[in-house]
Computed example of a mutant assay.
Amino acid sequence: MFRALADPTRRAIVERLARGPASVSDLAEPFGVALPTIVQHLKALEAGQIVSSAKLGRVRTYQLAAGAFGPAIAWLSRQRPHAERQVDRLTALLERTAKNTEGEQQ
């Protein structure tokens, strides 16, 4: 999932799909690139289980996959306490450094 979202074009496609389903040509329009390029991006998003598609006649429509971000949100939630501890340690170090610098200036 994170690999699929690493590309800015793919993130823009996901942002567009957050507003509702869209065809490949609708998704390609703002980028000014060939349809096969957008299809490659959509395949990467499908492989990351972020989007799903349906074909009706000759038109393939994409939408965000239900619950696509649940696993990523859960993983990020588990990482949060560790990240907060690191920020707390950095804050303490900066405060000590600032106090030492003030002491040397006096």
Rank of each mutant, 00 (worst) to 15 (best):
M1I: 05
M1L: 08
M1P: 00
F2N: 07
L5H: 12
A6N: 10
A6M: 12
D7Y: 14
D7T: 12
P8Y: 11
T9M: 12
T9H: 14
R10C: 00
R10I: 03
R10F: 04
A12Q: 13
A12G: 09
A12D: 10
A12E: 08
I13W: 04
V14L: 01
E15F: 07
E15T: 09
E15M: 11
E15N: 08
R16Q: 15
L17I: 06
A18C: 08
A18L: 12
A18Y: 11
R19A: 12
R19D: 15
G20V: 13
G20I: 14
P21M: 14
A22T: 02
A22L: 07
A22E: 07
S23K: 04
S23R: 10
S23F: 09
V24P: 00
D26L: 11
D26W: 07
L27K: 00
A28F: 03
P30M: 11
G32C: 13
G32P: 09
G32I: 15
A34K: 15
A34R: 15
A34Q: 13
T37D: 07
I38C: 03
I38F: 05
V39G: 02
V39Q: 05
L42P: 00
L42M: 01
L42V: 00
K43R: 09
A47W: 08
G48R: 10
G48V: 05
I50T: 13
I50K: 13
S52C: 07
S52Q: 13
S52N: 07
A54S: 12
K55W: 00
K55I: 00
L56D: 10
L56R: 03
L56T: 04
G57M: 01
R58S: 04
R58M: 04
R58D: 05
V59F: 00
V59C: 00
T61F: 02
T61K: 06
Y62A: 01
Y62N: 02
Q63P: 00
Q63I: 06
Q63N: 04
A65S: 12
A65V: 11
A66K: 15
F69A: 11
F69Y: 14
G70S: 10
G70F: 14
P71Q: 04
A72P: 00
I73N: 02
I73M: 05
W75R: 02
L76D: 02
L76I: 05
R78T: 04
R78P: 00
R78F: 03
Q79R: 05
Q79M: 08
Q79P: 01
Q79F: 02
P81R: 14
P81S: 11
H82W: 13
E84C: 06
E84W: 10
E84S: 06
R85V: 06
R85W: 11
D88G: 05
D88W: 05
D88K: 08
L90M: 14
A92Y: 14
A92E: 13
L93W: 14
L93V: 05
E95P: 04
E95R: 13
E95W: 13
R96M: 09
T97G: 08
A98N: 08
A98S: 08
A98C: 08
A98M: 08
K99D: 08
K99S: 06
K99I: 03
N100S: 09
N100W: 10
N100T: 07
N100V: 11
E102P: 02
E102R: 15
G103Y: 13
E104F: 15
Q105V: 04
Q105H: 05
Q106H: 06
